[in-house]
């Protein structure tokens, strides 16, 4: 019994030490009704409405305009809107925008790999399709015979 209580204290001390060492996040705010707190909450709800509006726009485009628009333009719009939403989630909801710049860079730089991954793999996919497109090869063959 006593050992359990003791462990609990040690942990509290350890975590308490951390909060003193590191984080302004845990610096003690006291008043939930303060203007600072209210601006934060206002910001959260603003982002919610932005995310909702962008999603509705996406669904509308997907339902109504997807057949009449060029595919490449459609993909460009959808990926743009997706990255826009992702940016808000990471910056505001995950508070990355509030972290130190060094930390932001440390987290974000490895993601640059994706640019290379996506270009390389998708290009490879369409190359494979091109190489294996039997219908075109067949067309080519028949036109030659017809000549």
């Amino acid at each position: 019994m006593s050992s359990h209580a003791n462990n609990d204290n040690v942990q509290a001390l350890y975590e308490g030490d951390q909060s003193k060492l590191y984080s302004g996040v845990m610096s003690h705010h006291t008043d939930v009704e303060s203007t600072e707190s209210k601006t934060q909450i206002k910001r959260i709800w603003k982002v919610f409405w932005i995310l909702l509006a962008v999603t509705l726009v996406e669904v509308f485009i997907g339902m109504q305009l997807s057949t009449s628009m060029p595919k490449a333009l459609l993909a460009f719009i959808f990926l743009g809107l997706t990255l826009f939403k992702a940016g808000y989630i990471v910056a505001i909801f995950m508070h990355l925008g509030d972290e130190k710049k060094n930390f932001m860079i440390t987290v974000l730089i490895p993601l640059v790999l994706f640019v290379w991954f996506i270009i390389a793999f998708l290009a490879d996919g369409s190359f494979w399709l091109h190489m294996n497109d039997t219908s075109k090869a067949r067309d080519h063959g028949t036109t030659q015979i017809a000549k």
Partner: peptide, 12 residues
Amino acid sequence: GRSPFNVSYGKM
């Protein structure tokens, strides 16, 4: 003596 990133170990 302190975290240059100003985040705790667990959060990082």
